[in-house]
Design a protein around this nucleic acid. Structure first.
Length: 480
RNA sequence: GGCCUCUUAGUAUAACGGUUAGUACAUCGGGUUUUCAUCCCGACAACGCGGGUUCGACUCCCGCAGAGGUCACCA
């Protein structure tokens, strides 16, 4: 089993096109000797973007889609950049010329445009082969080389779409080598896939209508026809169009910066348009490899749903922390803490993480959800006075409750369990309901819309900070 | 426009002729004797339309509609 991901370095990889890397990866890894190859299709100089190759490599590495052959790692079919394989394409091109299956095309662009218009006016499909020049010159670099097509009905099987067929009307004299000497995608990928022994070609459905032309080329080149795997598009948020950069499709690595875990991303994307028939939702990479099958890839496009990705990411955060423990998970959170956390050591941040992780949807939630652990919150007495449990109390009552609490806590031991016991006792002595007393203390400590369990929050915050914040709230209330 | 593909709740999907059409996210309600979240329970919600075939159709066939793809010296 040899599969490949063959992007063109024109920019970042977004969620709309990364699936054509994920599926071939999973496919290759299903067999012990399977290989996943990365090939950079950089034959279009005009669209080439500096640094895009690195972006692609970075994305694949982040997702854990390690390639067995390709840039950086090399392999038996080096080079893996098409721009460096020009002689190979020319070699195959000359074979076609020798066999009378390719010809140089001296026609200029304007004339070709005219052909198109003629066909349009006559309401017949435009096919270049209807305008094939009679005495083409000998081919040399500088003019395009065209395939001399042999149109006939063709049938083939697609691993996702099933049995397909097409008539001669879609087969044409496609350009093999451009005027600049570079091959077109149509030619280069066929040569490369054959040279590199790729036997499963995974790519988007947009190539479906070109397959008849490819079939003709395989035939003319006398090359084995690989299996075709056409992947449906991922649709944008509105309409039924495929998701693209125009829809604001973010780069995959942008999700990394937003605190999405690669496990969640891979899981979500793999299951968008594929399922194993079970009701399982969370899959590790190894599980995906084990369960993946081409015949269960969806034939219709799937809409990208960020809400579900977020849910899945929360699942993964909890799962990883519960499985690995805080210490092992902690390094992933670096870079996501609020600025104020810079002055605190890892041990303290780990304690915060341990009590907050189960309410994170993304790692970047840490930024807003943990600030009061690292700096004094700005006092907003409205949060207390207008709280649904507290608004029935007078300022004096609130102030007194806080002072009573502070006193009780002054002498309490500071472990979680004792703190909870102290808090419970406080409920009895004050005769207040948990929602009332605890909300008051919680808000006084954090001035945040939510926080972990009160005893845990206090235990991490420590006695000094806890008491200080209770007292400063008392002062603030009395100054109202 | 020609050719090709697709069509189950808001979203992602299950179903391979016989089910009260299942699940997850989202939404709404409730519980877990403090908020938020987790977790648990419950509710809402779908077979694009029209013909066939069949005792019986989401499932097979045909037509229609809608959506998308493709018709480059881009991939």
């Amino acid at each position: 089993m040899r599969t490949r991901f063959a992007p063109s370095p024109t920019g970042y990889i977004h969620i709309g096109n990364v699936r054509s890397a994920i599926y071939p990866y999973l496919l290759a890894k299903q067999s012990a000797d399977g290989k996943f190859i990365l090939r950079i299709e950089d034959t279009d100089r005009a669209r080439y973007v500096e640094g895009a190759t690195e972006l692609i490599e970075d994305t694949l590495e982040w997702l854990g889609l390690n390639w067995d052959e390709g840039p950086l790692v090399g392999g038996p079919h080096t080079p893996y950049f098409q721009s460096e394989r020009k002689p190979i394409y020319h070699l195959w091109a000359k074979k076609l010329i020798a066999a009378g299956r390719a010809y140089a095309d001296p026609t200029d662009a304007k004339t070709i445009d005219n052909y198109r218009k003629v066909c349009y006016n006559e309401k017949r499909p435009y096919l270049y082969r209807d305008f094939r020049p009679e005495n083409p010159p000998e081919w040399h670099e500088g003019i395009p080389l065209r395939f001399k097509s042999d149109p006939k009905p063709r049938k083939w099987h697609d691993e996702v779409m099933g049995d397909l067929e097409a008539g001669p009307e879609v087969q044409d004299d496609i350009i093999l080598i451009k005027a600049d000497g570079m091959p077109t995608y149509n030619f280069a990928h066929i040569v490369d896939d054959a040279e590199m022994d790729i036997n499963y070609i995974c790519r988007g459905v947009e190539y479906l209508s070109s397959v008849p032309n490819y079939l003709a080329l395989y035939e003319a080149l006398d090359l084995p026809v690989p299996k075709f795997v056409s992947l449906p598009h991922i649709l944008g948020p509105t309409g039924g169009k495929k998701l693209g950069k125009r829809d604001g499709a973010k780069s995959v690595t942008e999700y990394r910066d937003d605190g999405i875990l690669p496990e969640a991303m891979l899981n979500y994307l793999a299951c968008l348009g594929w399922n194993d028939g079970s009701e399982q939702e969370i899959y590790t990479k190894d599980e995906l490899i084990a369960r993946f099958s081409l015949d269960r890839i969806q034939t219709s496009g799937a809409r990208y749903d960020e809400t579900k990705l977020l849910w899945m990411n929360g699942q993964w955060i909890r799962r990883l922390v519960d499985q690995q423990g805080i210490d092992e998970f902690y390094p992933r959170t670096l870079g996501f803490w609020p600025d104020a956390a810079d002055n605190f050591d890892d041990a303290y941040k780990k304690r915060v993480l341990a009590i907050i992780y189960d309410r994170l949807k993304t790692l970047s939630d840490l930024r807003d959800m943990t600030t009061y652990f690292f700096r004094n919150p700005s006092i907003d007495t409205d949060m207390i006075v207008q709280n649904k449990f507290l608004k029935k109390f007078s300022i004096e009552e609130l102030s007194e409750l806080l002072q009573t609490s502070a006193e009780a806590l002054t002498d309490s031991a500071w472990d979680e369990d004792t703190l909870q016991a102290t808090l419970n006792q406080l409920l009895e002595t004050t005769g207040r309901k948990p929602a009332e007393l605890f909300s008051l203390i919680r808000l006084s400590l954090s001035f945040a819309p939510f926080s972990p369990a009160l005893n845990l929050t206090m235990s991490v915050l420590g006695r000094d900070l806890t008491l200080a914040r209770l007292h400063q709230t008392v002062t603030a209330l009395e100054n109202l």
